[in-house]
Every structure is written in structure tokens, then in C-alpha cells.
Design a protein around this nucleic acid. Structure first.
Lengths: 106, 106
DNA sequence: TATTCATATTGAAGATAATCGATTTGAGGT
DNA sequence: ACCTCAAATCGATTATCTTCAATATGAATA
């Protein structure tokens, strides 16, 4: 129950940081190796690793290990899930202006 | 340019915090006065005010002042903007698996 | 198994965000 | 004008996030 809020918040953490938005933008043109991301975004290796973890945990980014390298790509499923969730969170269930909840302190 | 990242990040900050997700959920059933939100979410008055500012700044929530009271509601326009932006940020422009960017370190 | 290299993890620093109590602002009512 | 009350702002504290350097892990190779 309470965890739902935290789980949902986690999804959108992917889009809340400048560096992660930069990484996402790079991945829009296709799957990339971590080393490629590292040389394009100006941050340290451990910092990139941390951000990739946040992105993967959000479900928006998919990791693929191949030998020593890790490749990352945008997950269509994860993205749709995020979009669907955002819509859910902002869908007004009752449009009535005379809603009892509207009035207060009177 | 650089500000785009920060501006975009700001939109999704609305969904990154447990308390703000609680407020959003309450607003799904229609416009609410700040005092109603205050008694339903267990936080201090100044804290609620801070969160409402973040929500309004994201564009997802619309404030309406009426006398001493402020009413808040989910903005359909702001929500659609956020949904559209999320889709934009996660849309892969080139689906090709043979993308030159995929390969690295070889 | 020893070495190399890519990535993950750890630990510590600094930056940003959340929270609260106290005060201020601003609109209504007396 | 004064008082009242809702909401915003301020100042300080605590918590969370970002970042880096150093170290550990784990896969490939010699």
C-alpha cells in the first residue's frame, strides 16, 4: 500500500535528473555500451554506474550484459508502463464541480 | 539548451515524492482546498505549501485563489504535456540493431 | 592462475530536498 | 483601523541525492 507510492516515485526518478535525461537522449538513437555513454556524458565511471542503476530500477532502461561490456537500451515496455502510470496518476475520476470535497471551511 | 534538461526534470519532480503522489491521488476525485489536503495528508502547513509549489511549478496542478482560500486541481493540459514529454524522452528514433553506436571497444 | 579491462560497489564529501516552527503576507470580517 | 485566519515565506535541521576516488567483482585472455 504505502510502498506503492515509493514504487511509483521510483519510476519517475528516471526523469528527474539532468544527467539521466542526457543518457536517455543518447539512448534514443539506439542501444549503447556503457563505455560509449561514459565518453559522451562528462561524469566519472562510478557516477554513470549509479545513474544507470537508477534508470534500470525505474524499468525504463534495459541492460544487456555481453562479456565484459554492458549495453543499455530504452525499454518499450518500461516506457509504456511509465506513461500509463503517469496517465493513471493524473486522471480525474469525478469531473463534477459541485463535488463535496471542493468546498471547505464553511 | 542545458535548461531544457532542468525544465524537463522539473515536470517529473511532481511524481518523485511520496507526499506529492498522495496529494495527487486526493485531487483525482476533484478540486480540493489546501485546508482539506492539510487534514488528509499528515504533514505541517508549511510543508504542504512547499509541495504545492513544486506541483504547481511542474504544471500538473492548477491553483485557484478565492478569498483567503486556495483550491488546487489537476490540470488536464499540464498532465497531457507531461505525458507527451515522457513519450518524447523515451521514443527511440532509430530501431536498427546494426546501429554503429551499439558496437564499442572493438 | 595471473593479468587485464569494464563495470559495480564502497565510503566520504558536498549539494539539494524535505520538514518543521515561527513569522509574514494578504484577504475578509468586526 | 484592527483582528482573524489561510497560505506563503524564512531559518534551521535532518534526510536524501549526487559525485568522486578507491577498491572489489567478474569476465575474457595469456
Amino acid at each position: 500500500m504505502d510502498n506503492d507510492y515509493l514504487d511509483n516515485a521510483k519510476v519517475f526518478k528516471a526523469f528527474c535528473d539532468e544527467t539521466r535525461l542526457r543518457v536517455l537522449e543518447l539512448l534514443r538513437s539506439g542501444e549503447k555500451c556503457a563505455c560509449v555513454l561514459l565518453e559522451k556524458v562528462e561524469i566519472g565511471q562510478s557516477t554513470l554506474s549509479h545513474h544507470m542503476k537508477v534508470l534500470v530500477d525505474s524499468g525504463v532502461i534495459l541492460p544487456r550484459k555481453q562479456g565484459k561490456w554492458t549495453y543499455y537500451s530504452i525499454s518499450a515496455e518500461g516506457s509504456e508502463n511509465a506513461a500509463r502510470l503517469l496517465r493513471e496518476l493524473t486522471t480525474v475520476t469525478i469531473a463534477s464541480d459541485n463535488d463535496e470535497n471542493t468546498r471547505c471551511c464553511e
